[in-house]
Write a protein that binds this DNA or RNA. Structure first.
Length: 475
RNA sequence: GCUGGGGUGGCCGAAUGGUUCAGGCGGUAGCCUGCAGAGCUGCUCUAUAUGGGUUCAAUUCCCAUCCCCAGCUCCA
């Protein structure tokens, strides 16, 4: 479904305004999103960010853009180094494990894969090139400790993304110990000189022995794959400062071109009303929830159902509620597939046009998924009324089914609804046996069989068109 | 401390200077059903943190207060 007339508005952190999205190359959207640091399993907060980016991508695609998406994997930093040393295994073996876990998780959540997942450790050369340019331009300098720092004094626009005035920054508890080596406390490391704590983890380069700073990897990898200026850069709100601010500064200082046109940041989530933290015992990885038996798609629905710039309160009650909502969507689609009627009214096409307009208009408005979902549920209710009255033809039902598929290409929560799954023979025999019992009005036996089937996850529903059944999805 | 975001019904969450403040979930009554499920309909008490102000009219704009959350150098 493409609609070239439609214009998508996105909230740009740079301007703090909603702006009409215009891509550099028509019909192509180049997106860079900050990926995971692969030192542990990702938690549900991380996935809120990845799901927001997934929805953005899917919506751009729906509107006819060819999306090119790069997501980095940070496989070299303090945490990965510490983790690998603690386990006594090579850094790469350590991070590879969590990279694989990450891929499993995003697949479970039905997140579309990025086009490229560049790793920091595989782009040291590209980073060094940028650092050398910055040194040459005098924007970077070598500190007394041998590390190379970016001098924010040389980049007057510093702070334009986060709107932070550098001189107001709190000289607080987290100021780096090696601060003495920098000219200004706010200068940040582009290249970190080797220290004994790094052990075997270092690169011998033109810049000396050491490892890259955190921010430089995103500059190097985004520009390598997307060009010096690209369309959209996403990440969690916490990354806005200092990570993205620094990334922006070093990129623009090196290229003297605008780095990114649209910066988008998602808000964090809370769990049961509190900040998610291990201390409160409310810290969950996706795996924790799956182990409790929750359906990853229900988790997906819950995490996408709140606008991305809104703080979101994750609760287990919400998860139950999300399951019911997803069931409602799936029940509707299942019902649509079963339509055999012939009566046609104009009502169905009126409703589908309304849905497309409302859903699309909402999503165009900075991915306002709340009103988009409201439009979808309105549509379902009104369609159910028509279905109850047997006023939908098979032909119309097929069209509605097609629209639901297009919408689900954006939401990714309905999936394939099995209409004619094959039942195992003994299960099928039970269903038949119950039908006979019902015909004989032997309700007791019929109910026993129904309970029996429910225990193995087969839900039976008696309708005027005969018995209908489907497999129960886990919560 | 500084800088942002926010406080909407039983819960989650939209929206808006103006007829009845989306939608989902839950509860409840009814229709349908052998029953259940699904679906539909009604209800869910004064739902917009509090106190002022602007306005013919504010939940929406302004001010103050209280509370929550985040950022403040490598946490999405």
């Amino acid at each position: 479904m493409t609609n070239k007339q439609a214009s998508i508005c996105l909230f740009n952190t740079l301007t703090r305004k909603k702006e009409t999205f215009t891509s550099i190359v028509p019909d192509k959207a180049k997106i860079y999103t900050c990926g995971p640091t692969v030192y542990d399993y990702a938690h549900i907060g991380n996935f809120r960010a990845f799901l927001f980016e997934d929805i953005l991508k899917r919506w751009l695609t729906y509107r006819g853009y060819k999306v090119i998406h790069i997501m980095n994997l940070t496989d070299i930093d303090d945490k990965t180094i510490k983790g690998s040393q603690k386990k006594g295994i090579p850094l790469q073996d350590y991070t590879e494990f969590y990279v694989n876990a990450f891929f499993e998780d995003i697949k479970a959540l039905n997140i579309l894969p990025a086009d490229v997942y560049p790793k920091a450790t595989e782009h040291i050369c590209e980073m060094i090139k940028i650092i050398q340019i910055l040194l040459k331009k005098g924007v970077a300098y070598k500190g007394e400790d041998g590390s190379i720092y970016f001098s924010i004094a040389k980049y007057p626009e510093y702070g334009k993304l986060s709107h932070i005035k550098v001189n107001e920054l709190k000289a607080g508890a987290r100021v780096n110990q090696d601060e003495y080596a920098k000219e200004e406390a706010q200068d940040f490391a582009l290249w970190k000189a080797w220290t004994p704590e790094d052990g075997k983890i270092y690169w011998d380069t033109e810049l000396g022995r050491g490892r890259p700073g955190w921010h430089i990897e995103c500059s190097a990898m985004s520009m390598k794959y997307l060009g010096e200026t690209f369309d959209i850069h996403c990440g969690g709100i916490d990354n806005m400062f200092p990570h993205h601010e620094n990334e922006l500064a070093q990129s623009e200082a090196s290229t003297e071109k605008k780095f990114v046109n649209y910066w988008m940041h998602n808000e964090h989530l809370q769990v049961e009303g509190k900040k998610m933290s291990k201390r409160f015992g409310n810290f969950y990885t996706l795996r924790d929830l799956l182990a409790k038996g929750y359906d990853p798609i229900v988790i997906r629905y819950l995490l996408i159902s709140t606008h991305y710039r809104q703080q979101f309160n994750f609760t287990f009650e919400g998860l139950e509620s999300a399951k019911a909502a997803v069931d409602r969507l799936r029940n509707f689609v299942r019902r649509i597939h079963e339509v055999e009627g012939t009566t046609m009214t104009e009502k169905v096409s009126t409703l589908t046009s309304k849905l497309e307009a409302c859903f699309g208009g909402s999503m165009d408005d900075d991915l306002n998924i709340g009103t988009a979902l409201a439009a979808l549920f309105d549509f379902i209710r009104e369609m159910n009324v028509l279905l109850d009255a047997n006023l939908v033809s098979k032909e119309e039902a097929v069209q509605v089914g097609g629209l639901m598929i297009r919408i689900d290409e954006v939401l990714g929560v309905i999936g394939k609804v099995e209409i004619k799954e094959v039942l195992s023979e003994d299960v099928d025999a039970l269903v038949q046996k119950r039908e006979e019992a019902r015909r004989a009005k032997n309700w007791k036996e019929a109910d026993t069989i129904r309970t029996q089937l429910k225990a193995i996850g087969i839900i039976l529903e008696d309708t005027t068109q005969g018995v209908r059944w489907h497999k129960e999805k886990k919560v």
